[in-house]
Simulated assay, not measured.
Amino acid sequence: MTDITTPRPFGVDFERHSLRGRFNAAFFRLMGPYIEWTLRRRKQRIFAHLPREVVEIGPGVGANLRYLSPGTNLIAIEPNPSMHEPLQEAARRRGVELDLRTRRAEVTGLPDNSADCVISSLALCSVQDPAAVLAEVRRVLHPGGTFRFLEHVAAPEGTVTRWAQRMLRRPWAWTFEGCSCERDLEAVIRDAGFENVWAEPYRVHSPFLPFNTQIVGMAWA
């Protein structure tokens, strides 16, 4: 499986689109309960017993705050300003201390070996360069720290889902701000140089066919 996108040079700033940014913030607030219902069982498993300080790549409107204990310090790497207000509201409701950083995940600005845990869900599909993001995750994790992830990935070749991903790739990417439904993220994570990687493929059944093939797992620095 290959990714149709070619990584572009990246910087700290996010290329904001006035329409798509607001649409995505509204979409994920509206669809959040349905998406959470679809993914809840696996999120409960992978995000169990999180430490009191967590770094999250692309927290969006705050779907994963429910898995953090009240008083947890969340360092949120969220470059899209349209997501910031709902994320801040969700943090206040959940009693989470939010350290919000408007940066791309490739260049978090965090110190080396400074994090116990980094999490991401449905985020690596949208970054410009997944390999660079994972190198950054490894850099900021201290030895033995964990990267916990839940992501949607390319379906096997020859399947109806793979056909749909290929047919819908351009409107999907435009609508969801660069999201690729054709990335083999398990291979990218396994190639990132972690000490150990556990990943489990699974399938959800939703009307959003390109989204239905996913992985959940953990990598140890």
Rank of each mutant, 00 (worst) to 15 (best):
I77S: 00
V96R: 00
A48P: 11
W172N: 01
P210Q: 07
I46P: 15
I77K: 01
S126H: 01
E200R: 15
C181K: 11
R20E: 12
I35N: 07
I4T: 11
E136A: 05
S121F: 12
I189M: 09
E136I: 02
N80L: 10
S114T: 09
G71V: 02
N113E: 07
V12Y: 10
P7S: 03
D112F: 11
W198A: 14
A221K: 07
G193T: 08
D99P: 03
R166E: 04
H142K: 13
V127K: 00
V140K: 03
A219W: 02
D116E: 14
F211N: 09
G62F: 02
G58M: 01
H142L: 02
R138C: 05
V55W: 03
N113Y: 03
H17Y: 12
E106K: 00
S180F: 14
E151Y: 05
R103N: 01
A199N: 06
P79Y: 02
I46T: 11
P86Q: 12
D116G: 15
L68K: 01
E157M: 15
N212V: 11
V153H: 06
A25D: 14
R190D: 12
R183I: 02
Q88V: 08
A26L: 07
Y34E: 05
H49P: 01
Q88H: 07
S120R: 04
M1W: 06
V96K: 00
P70K: 13
